[in-house]
């Protein structure tokens, strides 16, 4: 599948856009420390805030990219969301499922591998970012709104597993 990607750069503001969405480059240190801040603020809902911040930022964006790529059926839109994940430098995922939910196998992961580069293996799940992304990806595929899906990690590269595994269930 080839996504129709339109990268643009504004010569006046020096802002970068992808299919109309304002984008920025950052590194795994930034991602790992944002994730750790969410973990440190668990008493105040840090991981949930991180997950929902991702879902809200990505739902419209994924919808835009898959629509610009003329992907209309849910299976293609789901695969398009997974491909976009790789385009953005987030890793590679294999996804299966239906409107009711499904499963994601995380083969490579910017979030997990970045965490391990910085701190080594962790003792608990930390990939709240990808859970938020997967929630947005399923909602975009099946024409749903935010908070439609419960998304949870059940295996983690950051915890030493060879692959990550994320389950998805419609609420």
């Amino acid at each position: 599948m080839a996504l129709n990607l339109n990268f643009t750069f504004d010569d006046n503001t020096y802002r970068h856009y992808l299919n109309g969405e304002l984008m920025v480059l950052h590194c795994h240190h930034y991602m790992a420390l944002y994730t750790k801040l969410a973990e440190d603020m668990s008493d105040y809902g840090g991981p949930k805030i991180l997950k929902e911040s991702v879902e809200d930022a990505f739902l419209g964006f994924i919808n835009q990219v898959v629509s610009d790529s003329s992907l209309s059926d849910p299976a293609s839109r789901l695969a398009g969301g997974a491909e976009l994940y790789s385009v953005l430098g987030l890793g590679t995922m294999e996804v299966s499922g239906s409107e009711a939910g499904g499963e994601v196998s995380l083969v490579r992961s910017h979030v997990d591998e970045g965490w391990k580069k910085k701190w080594g293996n962790n003792h608990k799940f930390i990939n709240h970012f990808t859970c938020g992304y997967v929630a947005a990806m399923f909602s975009a595929a099946y024409g749903k709104g935010a908070r439609t899906y419960d998304v949870n990690e059940v295996a983690s590269i950051a915890m030493g597993e060879a692959k990550g595994r994320i389950t998805v269930k419609q609420k």
């Binding site: 969405e21 304002l22 984008m23 590194c27 809200d56 953005l88 910017h110 580069k117």
Partner: peptide, 12 residues
């Protein structure tokens, strides 16, 4: 490892 993400996520 670099990532290229919507600014809306970081700001949110």
């Amino acid at each position: 490892l670099v990532n290229n993400l919507p600014t809306a996520f970081w700001n949110n």
